[in-house]
Design a protein around this nucleic acid. Structure first.
Length: 447
RNA sequence: GUGGGUGUAGCUCAGUUGGCAGAGCACCAGGUUGUGGCCCUGGUGGUCGCGGGUUCAAGUCCCGUCACUCACCCCA
């Protein structure tokens, strides 16, 4: 049997309703905030990612799907979206028509890592990027949007972590001080951190090895070395979030694995996915657009891990289902999740309005004709062409959870009296063999 | 890339010191000759992940390999 390749997977029909609901919820939210959708290719020149994400990062060093095309160009399946969106912004001089661009995009990314819970080689992200705004209000707004999205999906118990990495003015002095500190602690640091010292010393700050953590406990923090402008910027972000009642934790170890970030960085963490705790992450990248050959332009954005988000929403829905057996718990859940109730409607599974049971050859042809007419009229209708018995088709109608069954045997057609059965109430009616749409619409309205 | 766990029916899983490959659910049919859910009866369905080895005999023991999974690392 040919199977999916490692780390790749199918999203099956039983899950796509949830995926669509999340997608709808997110794009509605973005549109409400004035964001426009952009769609970008999944393959780009390798150089784009190497230059933006950073040559020394794990992503570029060992996780990219890179190959030569027939003319020898080096191409890469995108490991993230920001680089492509920035490329598009530059390529189409989007800043020329409007300095401010608020964009979002949804699609698959590819990284060749060892698969794990919440981590796939093809995974989906919802990305948002804002160009041309220097103000910290936009930093706060992006975090607010994330917060709002999770609220609308009925999720609680997520933690927003934020930090500031400083800018090209204050970061060099900080790095110098950090390196001094690290040199004094060399014997306590793990191999990885020793390597990181040269390549990207900031990364030593978020090492998870216990000995490193201990050694780094009193390491200098970027927050104490911000220049006046960066400091003001960060203070405004925090105070705005406070005023909007968006909870957050200032986390000086939050540095992130991509090189292009400056000033504000943030991550949304969950405990629901084992080791893969980041559901969303992002930050400011004011130098990136120029770095990639564009005009000097402010930039900030985030990525939401769609697979992870879908997983924790699914977990939440399961919990809710379990608790629904207990009436008071269910009520409490509803009260706490007004938005979630709205969201639940989006996920509900569509079952047939009508299942037509044909008995006989003439009946099967009529059943097909009726089903088509009803489908075109927007009435969810199913039928069956196998010629099986009434009993087995009744069972099938029941399994599909159809509201009504229409029994159309050759006999009924002959008598011009088809049997319409309400599967909930067991009431039965006769209808004639003409104008199915009209007749059935009136019955459906009574359900 | 490194470590642990797991691979038996569509799904969840039993399978004893090596001795005819099982259960529940699902599916199909019948019980009810044309009326669903519950119940009863029967049936379909297997390369025991794959390849080698030991043995009269391997799902079971040995070696290899692949996949899945969790964790490290990193991130979404």
């Amino acid at each position: 049997m040919i199977q999916t390749i490692r780390g790749f997977r199918d999203i099956l029909p039983e899950d796509t309703a949830l995926w669509q609901a999340i997608e709808k919820t997110a794009s509605k939210l973005f549109e409400d905030f004035g964001f426009k959708e952009i769609r970008i290719p999944v393959i780009e020149k390798t150089e784009l990612f190497a230059r933006s994400i950073g040559e020394a990062t794990d992503i570029v060093e060992k996780e990219m799907y890179t190959f030569d095309d027939r003319k020898g160009d080096k191409l890469t399946l995108r490991p993230e979206a920001t680089a492509s969106v920035v490329r598009a912004y530059i390529q189409h001089s989007m800043g020329a028509s409007d300095a401010v661009q608020k964009l979002y995009t949804i699609g698959p990314m590819f990284r060749r890592e060892r698969p794990q819970k919440g981590r796939y080689r093809q995974f989906y992200q919802i990305n948002s990027e804002v160009f041309g705004i220097e103000s910290p209000y936009i930093d706060a707004q992006l975090i607010l949007i994330l917060n709002e999205l999770f609220k609308r999906l009925g999720l609680s118990e997520l933690e927003a972590h934020i930090n500031s990495l400083g800018c090209k003015e204050c970061r060099p002095t900080f790095q110098k001080e950090l390196l001094n500190f690290l040199n004094g602690k060399k014997e306590h640091l793990c191999e990885n951190c020793l390597r990181r010292m040269d390549k990207n010393p900031l990364r030593t700050l978020d090492c998870k090895v216990p000995e490193c953590r201990a050694a780094m406990a009193d390491a200098p923090s970027t927050l104490n070395h911000l220049c006046e402008k960066c400091k003001d910027h960060f203070e405004t972000v925090k105070s705005v979030l406070n005023e909007q009642h968006v909870d957050f934790i200032v986390d000086k170890t939050l540095v992130r694995g991509l090189d292009y970030y400056s000033r504000t960085t943030f991550e949304i963490l969950t405990t629901a996915l084992g080791a893969q705790s980041a559901v969303a992450g992002g930050g400011r990248y004011d130098a990136l657009i120029k770095e990639l050959g564009g005009p000097e332009t402010y930039g900030i954005g985030f990525a939401i891990g769609f697979d992870r988000l879908a997983e924790i929403v699914a977990q939440m829905l399961n919990d809710a289902k379990m608790r629904a057996h207990n009436a008071s718990d269910a009520k409490e859940f509803q009260d706490k999740n007004l938005y979630a109730a709205e969201f639940l409607k989006l996920v509900s599974i569509k079952t047939p309005d009508i299942f037509i049971i044909p008995l006989g050859e003439k009946a099967t042809r009529l059943a097909y004709m009726w089903t088509s007419a009803l489908n075109i009229a927007g009435i969810r209708t199913e039928t069956d062409y196998s010629g099986r018995s009434l009993k087995s088709l009744m069972k099938r109608a029941d399994k599909l959870n159809a509201d009504f069954v229409l029994i159309a045997g050759d006999k009924e057609i002959e008598d011009n009296a088809l049997v319409l059965r309400n599967m909930r109430t067991k009431e039965q009616y006769f209808i004639t063999a003409e104008n199915p749409v009209e007749q059935l619409e009136t019955f459906l309205n009574r359900v």
